[in-house]
Amino acid sequence: MDDDTPTEQTSEAENSYWQENIRLLVSLMAIWFACSFGAGILFRDFLDQFMIGGYPLGFWFAQQGSIYIFIALIFFYVVRMKQIERKYDLDD
């Protein structure tokens, strides 16, 4: 049997697609974790010396900033996944 059968090529493409997908998810979740837990909790005391909208920056990240960043990450995920799906010919 030939090593370049369509099944093996498809399997390689599927593996590459899922590797890119998981890498993207892990990266975005790490960014969200750094912003929500890091900026809102761990580095709050340092960030509180800066102000945004009349509130200390650490407090702002804990209350609103991590939510805004999460929403921005969702939009980025949608755009990036469309690019990945086009790359692997999986788009609608």
Rank of each mutant, 00 (worst) to 15 (best):
M1A: 10
I52R: 01
R80Q: 15
R80K: 10
R44A: 04
L47Q: 00
L42N: 01
Y17A: 05
Y55T: 07
A62E: 07
D91F: 03
G53C: 09
I41V: 08
E12C: 00
C35T: 08
M29V: 07
R80I: 15
D48W: 08
F46A: 01
W18R: 10
I74K: 08
A39G: 03
L24I: 10
I84Q: 06
S27Y: 12
Q63M: 08
L42G: 00
T5Y: 11
T7R: 12
A13M: 02
E85P: 01
G54Y: 15
A13N: 03
G58I: 00
W60D: 00
G38Q: 05
I22S: 06
S16T: 09
A30C: 04
Q19F: 05
W32P: 02
Q49E: 14
I67K: 05
G40M: 12
Q63W: 04
I41R: 15
D89E: 15
V78P: 04
Y55L: 06
T5H: 09
W18V: 04
S11K: 07
K87M: 10
I31M: 02
M1E: 04
G53V: 12
K82D: 15
V79S: 05
A39N: 11
I71G: 04
L90V: 06
Q49P: 02
M51W: 12
S27V: 12
L47P: 00
Y68G: 03
A39T: 08
Q64C: 09
Y88H: 14
N15D: 12
Y55W: 14
F59Q: 07
S66A: 09
F50G: 05
A39F: 15
V26R: 01
G38E: 05
D89C: 04
I84R: 03
E12Y: 03
L24W: 07
A13P: 00
S16P: 13
A30N: 01
D2Q: 13
F76Y: 15
A39P: 09
G38R: 01
Q63K: 03
V78A: 10
F33E: 14
L73Q: 07
G40C: 05
R86H: 02
M29A: 09
V79K: 10
W18N: 06
A72Q: 12
A62Q: 11
L28F: 10
G40V: 01
Y88C: 11
F59V: 13
F75N: 06
